[in-house]
Write a protein that binds this DNA or RNA. Structure first.
Length: 519
RNA sequence: GUGAGCGUAGCUCAGCUGGUAGAGCAUCGGUCUGUGGCACCGAGGGUCGCGGGUUCAAUCCCCGUCGCUCACCCCA
């Protein structure tokens, strides 16, 4: 018996994309394919899940993104360990709030015990050397910190980050993005030996364990492109941006804005971050609690703050454009020249930053209308450090990812919707004598590439036409006694009721040319 | 993790200081056995998200819970 209370429903943050929306999605993705191929990008399909460490390393292991925001499966160590780690981060939060470090040390001890047990279990063969090293390190820090209460804060943070890396061996995660996967595939398949720059694109679902909100899902879809190779010529960046702009134009997403910035390289950015941090400390008491926290954790993110009362302060902060090294400044200037030459409209946004270390120089973002606070439909940038970070040869890279969910939402909320052709022909047959003819001609029409609906059961003629109308068919093909006797078909155009008698040959000719006319 | 708003038919919603439910659209059938869109008539479809409390009586009031939505945090 069906129990309404226990009906299955899509998991939080996931959804069904149904017709007719799914046709819009297919068109959206096909438009990307066609366009990207014309820029000589090629499709790459990587697995939907990968070694957790791939994502952990690319995203920076010190962040808690790994444990909070990814879907991970197959933990080879005991769930005890996961629980102990969770307790550890909880008690750290509490310690920070209450300024009482004692509960944290207790959690550290029970975490170490959990490690001991996990290492000693039958799964010991699967633990990594890294795990043991981290384990020993935590032990060392823990005993040291007891003697030096000055540094407990730093020690705690280090322990947390070490703890987060233990037990990741054999752990797999659903991909939260695809750049790391593409970089991994590039390395694994020796693609650096391919001629020229390697230009790849991908289309598919990604997974992040975030609270859903407007345009934000736990399973969401991205269309991305990456250029990997030896060159970091600004023209590559410009071509990627051109392709992006053309894409948004082609899908009718007109009210978009492209923001561009340069965040320097590993030489100049750290210096800027320090300058920024210094300045932020000076104005600390004028900032909200979130921004105050970011001064230490991620000063660049302060620039992102949306709080109205902070805007005036942020406007006076030092800008990275004044702190770029000569090479980066040159690269950015050339990029802007290229964009102008290509007639690409953009806005320079010095507050557009990316937090992760492997990002270099060019960053960009596209925002669209009608999306509430989640208005970015595309983000990207240069990541010259990533491939090497993942153990590959020194390689330059740039790429972007378009959030399809949001982009399509924006199209639906004010863009120009494409006219997507649906059902071409509804075969309105009546009388068993007409049925074999109906089956035959239906197959012929389908072979010619037309979408055809053939009712499985005989219907009253009026119903038949009514259904044809409701299904949105462009034509009704009428086959009854008269047609069978005369060996012809009656084709009725539903839009204007125009009707003509045709032979099979004429019918196929007519409908095929009509189809070609529709593109 | 935090906050706010909302849960009544497939969809959009109504429901009066509390008297165990309605409309429009959609679906199906009929008027209508060779001509759709219109009109008219009819039908199916609901333990009013779930649990508890107050009450003679709860869709309505109270508490809890689950779900959805939006925003914050985060955003690779």
């Amino acid at each position: 018996m069906a129990d309404h209370r226990r009906q299955f429903r899509a998991i939080k943050g996931t959804r069904d994309i149904l017709p007719p929306d799914s046709a819009l999605w297919n068109w959206f993705e096909q438009t990307a394919r066609d366009l990207f191929e014309s820029y000589n990008f090629r499709d790459i399909r990587t697995p939907a899940f990968e070694d957790t460490n791939l994502f952990a390393r690319s995203v920076g292991e010190e962040t808690d993104i790994v444990h909070k925001e990814m879907y991970s499966i197959g933990d080879s160590l005991s769930s005890n360990l996961s629980f102990a780690r969770w307790m550890l981060s909880k008690s750290h939060e509490t310690s920070v709030r209450t300024h009482d470090i004692q509960p944290f040390w207790k959690s550290v001890d029970s975490f170490l015990r959990a490690c001991d047990e996990a290492f000693a279990s039958e799964e010991i063969g699967r633990k990594g050397d890294d795990d043991v090293q981290c384990f020993e390190k935590i032990k060392a820090i823990r005993s040291e910190a007891g003697n030096d209460p000055e540094n407990t804060e730093d020690a705690a943070r280090e322990i947390l980050s070490l703890a987060n890396t233990i037990g990741l061996h054999g752990l797999m995660s659903l991909r939260p993005e695809a750049t790391a996967s593409v970089a991994r595939a590039y390395i694994e398949n020796g693609m650096q030996t391919l001629p020229g720059n390697v230009k790849l694109y991908y289309i598919g679902p990604m997974f992040r364990r975030e609270r859903p909100q407007k345009g934000r899902y736990r399973q969401f879809y991205q269309i991305g492109a990456e250029v990997l190779g030896q060159s970091d010529a600004p023209a590559i960046d410009a071509e990627v941006l051109e392709m992006l702009v053309v894409f948004f134009k082609r899908v009718g997403l007109t009210r978009t804005t492209l923001y561009v910035n340069s965040i320097g390289c590993k030489e100049c950015r750290p210096k800027y971050v320090e300058v920024l941090r210094e300045k932020l400390r000076e104005v600390k008491d004028q900032l909200g609690p979130d921004s105050q926290r970011r001064i230490d954790t991620n000063p660049l993110r302060v620039l992102d703050s949306k709080l109205p009362e902070e805007q005036a302060i942020i406007a006076k902060l030092p800008r990275i454009s004044d702190h770029l090294c000569a090479e980066c400044r040159e690269h950015f200037a050339k990029l802007k020249e290229e964009l102008n030459m290509r007639g690409i409209a953009y806005e320079e946004n010095w507050r557009l930053v990316r937090g992760l270390d492997y990002y270099t120089r060019t960053t960009f973002e596209v925002t669209a209308e009608g999306l509430g606070s989640q208005n970015a439909v595309c983000g990207g940038g240069r990541y010259d450090g990533l491939v090497e970070l993942l153990g590959g040869p020194p390689t330059k890279g740039i790429g972007f990812a378009i959030g399809s969910d949001r982009a399509i939402l924006s199209i639906q909320e004010g863009g120009t919707l494409p006219h997507l052709s649906g059902l071409a022909v509804f075969v309105a047959w009546m009388g068993q004598a007409a049925y074999p003819t109906a089956v035959h001609i239906t197959r012929k029409l389908r072979e010619a590439g037309l979408a055809v609906e053939l009712p499985a059961e005989e219907m009253k003629f009026k119903k038949s036409l009514g259904l044809a109308d409701k299904l949105g068919a462009r034509y009704a093909l009428i086959i009854g006694e008269d047609e069978v006797a005369a060996g012809t078909f009656t084709l009725k155009r539903l839009a204007d009721s125009e009707q003509k008698k045709l032979s099979e040959y004429e019918l196929l000719e007519y409908l095929e040319s009509e189809r070609r006319g529709r593109g």
